[in-house]
Structures are given as C-alpha cells and as structure tokens.
Design a protein around this nucleic acid. Sequence first.
DNA 1: GCAATGATTGACAGTCGCTGACACTTACGG
DNA 2: CCGTAAGTGTCAGCGACTGTCAATCATTGC
Lengths: 191, 191
Amino acid sequence: MSRRAVQSRIARTAESLFVAKGFEETTVDEIAAAVGMSQRSFFRYFASKDEVVLDSLARLGEDMAERLTERPRDEPEWDSLRRSFDPIVERYTDPGHREHDAALQRIVECSPRLFAAYLGRLDRLQRTLADRLVARAADRTGCEPDALLLRATVGGAFACLHATMLHAVADPEAFARCLDRTMAALRPAAA
Amino acid sequence: MSRRAVQSRIARTAESLFVAKGFEETTVDEIAAAVGMSQRSFFRYFASKDEVVLDSLARLGEDMAERLTERPRDEPEWDSLRRSFDPIVERYTDPGHREHDAALQRIVECSPRLFAAYLGRLDRLQRTLADRLVARAADRTGCEPDALLLRATVGGAFACLHATMLHAVADPEAFARCLDRTMAALRPAAA
DNA sequence: GCAATGATTGACAGTCGCTGACACTTACGG
DNA sequence: CCGTAAGTGTCAGCGACTGTCAATCATTGC
C-alpha cells in the first residue's frame, strides 16, 4: 500500500471523526485507533494533526502555483491571479468535491488554532506566487520589478478570494460570480 | 500590584528570553522561573505562550478599531482604513517603540506557529473593522451595504499593510511612504 | 483587634501533541 | 539463506496547558 493511499485513508477516517466530534475534541490516539495503527505511525504519515486537514489545501496550492506559471508573461498580474484561482472555483462547482470541501472548510473555521495554521499556509502560498510574479516581471522588463507592490497585489487578490470563500459557504453556486465581482471592484488601476 | 503590571513584567522578561534563545526554544517554565512565579501562575496571566507576544498587538488592534470609528461617515472606506493604520505608522516612527517592536516582529516571523497565530489575530481584526464599515455604510445610506465587498476591501488594505510591514523591516523610516504608495496603487476605483 | 470572606498563589496530577530510541517483522536482492 | 532496507509497535520523555485543592494574603464588616 502506497504512502499516498495510507495518508488518504487516515485523512478520510480523521475527517469523519472531526465532523462528528470537532477537531480539538478528537485525539490523534482516537484517529490512530480508528485507522488501526499506533499513534507513532500516525506521525510517520502526517507531521502534525493540523496537516491531516491542511494537506489537501497544500495540493490545491500547488495547482494554483502551476496555473500561474502557465499564464502568458505579459498578461496583467490581476488577471493571472484570477486564473490561478480557477482550481478553487472548479472545486466549488464540482458536486463531487463540493460537499466534502465544505465540511473541511467548516472544520477549519470552527477551530481557531487550525484556522490560524490555514492562514499561515495561505501566506506561504502568497509568497510563492509573488516570487513567481517578480521573476516573471523581471524576465519581461529586464529591470528590477517592484516586489513590494507585487506582494501587495497578490495579497489583495487573496483578500478577494478569502472574503468570497467565507461569504459563499451558504451559496456555492454563486462562488465564481462573487469572486469575479469582488476582484473587478478591487482591481488595481495600474495592473 | 495590578494585573496589568504583572502581565507587563512577564512580557518584558519573556521577550528578552525570546530574543536571546528564540521563541520555540524558550520554555514557559523558564519564563515563570525568571519572573519568579510558578508555571501555573503564568497561565493565570496569559492564556497561552503565544499571547505573551501577541498581547501588545491586540492593544494596537483596539487602537486601530477606535481610529476607524472616529472617521467621518462619508469618507471613502479606503481612506478611513489608511487612517486607522496610523497607530502602526506612529509606532514605526517613534524611536522609543521602534526598536522593541522590531524585535517583537522578528520573533513572530521566526516562528511559523507564532506567525500563524498572528495572522489569526489579524483576520479577527479585519472582521471587526469590516463589521464597523458595514454598520457605517448602513447608517449612511439606509440600505443594506455589500458586506462581501467591504470585507474584501478591508482585506486589500491589510494586504498593503502586511506587505509593507514585511518589506520595511530593513528600513523603518520608509514605512509611511511605502504604505502610502502601496495603498495608492491598490486603491479600489469605486472607493 | 478579630473573624469571615474572597482573591491570589503554589503544588500536584493529568491530558494531549509530538519526538527520539530501540527492537521486531516483513520484503526483497544477492 | 543471509543482509539490508523499509515499515511498524512500544516505551519513555518533553512541553504546553488544565483542573483541583490547600494555603496564604488582603479586605471588609463587626
């Protein structure tokens, strides 16, 4: 059984426990027992209890970073960022994932500790995307781009995404429309 | 001795230890011993080890929220938000606080766990400010304002602030100038 | 001046997340 | 058949944090 498959099995078991009892109230001993392994082995597959939940987000982040690199060099940064959010939009509209992802989002939002860890991941992702935009701009213009401004631009786009995600829990259908509207309203004049 | 004074004494002692050894490497047993109290009493003054560092930020957040409520109702939200950031700008330029705050910022940024908790606080502060802007807009226009857009606007402004803070560690003098420049560039057209 | 009262504290035990060390078992290649 | 590598369980331990209880200390009312 591959490592990935075991991780997936642990994650599925853990998430059902989290939904049933809450994240903080679920012990990793309980998770390990439910999966049928020792606590020690649990930590061989996940570095922390947080990561069980945040792991799927990490993969989504990789997708987003990949989308960004696929965008044309001379596209306005704001549009490239909007396109890099497409994987999330797709997950929200895909009925196969929507229900599961909504449950995950509820788990994250209900635990301040986990939510903070989630924000930390988001921040790291923003750094990654901003770095790529800096490299892209340097490649295109040949001179040193404004890293601060690009970092803030990425932050602004993620603010739109974050606000929309918190807003659209009730109405997943409207996600893409809300995101587009918000990003249109916050679009920087220079980009 | 007042509760506040004890907290301040603990915070000062802890911060010097954090600077010397790092946040993760400093035990709350060590902090308690350095202050001259039991570990149990430490947790009577601070709910967690994180809070020792993040407490001063919480007070700064209250200042910011207060500044926002003092702004005129019909001022563009973006400008009100910029003004609510003034307490931070003042702290960066005040030579009495600058050195200490820079040390605190370094501590926070060096510990991913602490940094995530910091982001969590920032997010809660954004919710507070956004709620006030929603109430303000409702009070002014008489009809239901666009809460999603206001939340995203606050997020965008904080993205400018966050990016500037990470950027200006090297050059605190330029903080206000960088913040103004970034916020001018990301200013929403409609606000 | 004293006793009742309430707040503050220390000591202790315990939970939970997480880590290191070691022994064991299984699978695979020589 | 042996050696090696990978995966696992067990145990011991650390550090953050909590509940409990008894002792202490200051305050208030008499």
